[in-house]
């Protein structure tokens, strides 16, 4: 990479199309890509499958970019286009300014050996290799020596919390452990760009949450540029710096988690955002008004712009007195404090 490209986004996707079927490239060229919907319809009339339709976005260095969509929305195909596991039909994918769709096979291998790492939904562990050998495999491809490979592998295995299991075989591991190996392997060569294709979808909910947290910890220290695929809106909102929502091969909205929840662009996105506990994903800063002539003096709870609505509400509720609760006949049978009340609601949604 030359220095003049260092200001370029880590990944830039421009006008990317992936059309499956015989003679897709010719058809796409003939039809043209002025109007995405129209082009897709014409392609489908010819029996072709436009799996990714005119995708455009950028991922900044150190950003955690999540692509979310239902199964069949083209998100897995999209990540395979960016990593060039499938050959895109049209468009450009720039990694640090270099269009990798134009890269030679040799250059591509070079990139994969040094710059790219990928985690797969079903782990993709090599069944005939031990954990350490699996993790060290990309290093072996780099041509690293045996002892160097082992040392680095142990380092990454420790990072993902699998110390002591390095000589186990994949079949001896649980699902969560397997994906830890997958993560370790993808990090072995210390890549700049990290692709994760539904890495936690095949895991139990509890393990999933645990791995999500650990993944955030790892990212906090490593600061990779990440493309993360998921079909789970809660996962997307929890992890993402920005989210791209896909439907029928099209990216329909790109935004921060808050933007997605607050301003869904259409019913499809709104439908996703509906079941999301908004209180947890929106901050008080996003709903506050400018300071007018209102009474601001006095004892007020400590609110900060970055606070979630839930936390802010708890703080506010603490300023109220307890409220009596009556039975059917109007007799007071107990009382409730608004803050415990708010906490109980929050606890339920967690």
């Amino acid at each position: 990479m030359t220095d003049k490209n260092s200001a370029a986004p880590a990944i830039a996707v421009e006008g990317l199309w992936q059309v499956f079927g015989e003679g897709a490239r010719n058809s796409l060229q003939k039809i043209g890509t002025q109007d995405t919907r129209d082009t897709a319809a014409k392609l489908q009339d010819q029996g072709l499958i436009p799996a990714v339709r005119d995708a455009n976005f950028e991922v900044q260095s150190g950003e955690l970019f999540v692509i979310m969509g239902l199964s069949g929305s083209g998100k897995s195909t999209l990540i395979r286009c960016i990593s060039r596991l499938v050959e895109p039909t049209a468009g450009a994918v720039r990694i640090d300014g270099e269009d990798i769709l134009q890269a030679s096979d040799k250059r591509l291998i070079d990139l994969r050996r040094n710059k790219l790492g990928m985690v797969f939904q079903h782990f993709g562990l090599f069944p005939h290799m031990s954990v350490a050998d699996n993790v060290a495999f990309p290093l072996k491809m780099q041509g690293a020596g045996r002892s160097e490979r082992r040392a680095r592998a142990l380092e990454v295995i420790k990072l993902v919390g699998l110390e002591g299991r390095e000589d186990a075989y994949p079949r001896e591991l649980s699902g969560g452990q397997r994906q830890r190996v997958g993560i370790a392997r993808s990090l072995a060569v210390n890549p700049d760009i990290w692709f994760l294709d539904e890495p936690f979808s095949a895991l139990d909910p509890l393990i999933r949450r645990q791995l999500q947290d650990e993944f955030l910890n790892i990212q906090a220290t490593l600061k990779k540029s990440i493309v993360f695929i998921t079909h789970d809106i809660a996962e997307a909102l929890k992890l993402a710096d920005r989210i791209a929502i896909m439907r029928d091969g099209e990216v329909v909205q790109i935004g921060t988690p808050t933007q997605i929840v607050l301003n869904p662009i259409d019913d499809y996105v709104r439908e996703f955002a509906r079941d999301v506990p908004k209180g947890r994903h929106m901050t008080i800063g996003e709903v506050m008004e400018p300071v007018g002539d209102g009474p601001l003096a006095g004892e007020w709870p400590e609110l900060r712009t970055g606070m979630s609505l839930e936390d802010a509400l708890t703080q506010c509720a603490a300023t109220f007195e307890a409220v009596p609760v009556k039975d059917g006949d109007g007799k007071v049978v107990g009382m409730v404090r608004p803050d415990t009340f708010v906490k109980a609601l929050g606890a339920e949604a967690t």
Binding site: S83, D110, L111, F120, H122, F126, M141
Partner: peptide
């Protein structure tokens, strides 16, 4: 498995 195949590609194997 597809994932195993792709993992080998993404590891930079010829």
């Amino acid at each position: 498995e597809h994932d195993i195949r792709e993992a080998a590609i993404m590891s930079g194997g010829t």
